[in-house]
């Protein structure tokens, strides 16, 4: 009886059972890889951060909804261009694009986090009035130059600072949206060349750790209805927010 052999690319032969075993092992490997990838599907939210991370600073404790909680503060700015944020004084690839001052934010889990946002841009009417409202903050309000408000008039809003995330990955669902008051267009320029900013301050209570995104919902970019350019580009009017992970 002639023993059956297969042939490899160099013409050398190996027993058919070996080829079959290799095929079975390779197939099992592919299946295992698919299963591992499926299991790791929740890793969608675990993005790699490009660029510097703006870290919230611990400032002691504060009274939270259920007693004292760690308190942290973080600052951010919104500029009418990209010349003063993390893109550097040259403005990067798109110096004329409106931008947040940072792309990656980190805040602690299970803490009260107070955001202070200096908003240097002038007002743009919101397209969706929902984003005139303050949602998800402590007390349902934000403080605009020291005055509390739960909503702004549509014509007063320059941008929004809106945090949201993926609910099905096991991390807490977070939705925070704060309209950012426009700086008066006739305000005198400061030393940095921008008008005096509107100071927006608000606090949120964080839950467990998770990866979220923040973005603006006032179409302040280019293209159709202003949704293009900086509105659809990370590092301008969109960025990442990590809760709790070091």
């Amino acid at each position: 009886m002639v023993k059956e052999h297969g042939h490899n690319r160099r013409g050398r032969s190996w027993p058919r059972p070996v080829g079959a075993a290799v095929a079975v092992v390779a197939g099992a490997g592919v299946v295992a890889l698919v299963l591992v990838a499926e299991r790791a599907g929740s890793g969608l939210s675990t993005f790699d951060h490009v660029g510097p991370v703006e870290m919230a600073k611990s400032v002691g404790t504060v009274e939270g909804p259920n007693g004292p909680m760690p308190h942290a503060q973080i600052s951010l700015a919104v500029y009418p261009d990209s010349m003063a944020g993390e893109h550097g004084s040259g403005g990067g690839a798109h110096p004329s694009w409106v931008s947040y001052s940072a792309t990656n934010l980190w805040v602690p889990a299970h803490a009260v986090v107070t955001f202070t946002i200096r908003q240097y841009d002038s007002s743009t009417a919101t397209l969706d009035p929902y984003f005139n409202r303050v949602v998800g903050t402590v007390g349902g309000v934000a403080y605009y130059n020291g005055r509390s408000a739960s909503a702004l008039g549509s014509q007063s809003v320059a941008h929004t600072f809106t945090i949201h995330g993926i609910p099905q990955t096991g991390q807490p669902t977070v939705f925070v949206s704060v309209p950012l008051l426009g700086a008066p267009s006739n305000a005198p320029a400061q030393a940095n060349g921008y008008p005096a900013p509107a100071i927006v301050r608000f606090s949120i209570v964080t839950g467990g750790s998770g990866d979220y995104v923040f973005q603006c919902f006032v179409p302040c970019g280019t293209g159709y209805n202003g949704w293009g350019g900086p509105m659809e580009s990370q590092g301008y009017m969109a960025g990442n927010l990590v809760v709790g992970k070091g």
Binding site: R133, A149, S150, A151, L152, G153, L181, A183, P184, A196
Partner: peptide
């Protein structure tokens, strides 16, 4: 209802 607050700079 959520009433917008007039907050100037």
């Amino acid at each position: 209802p959520v009433h917008a607050t007039a907050v100037g700079t």
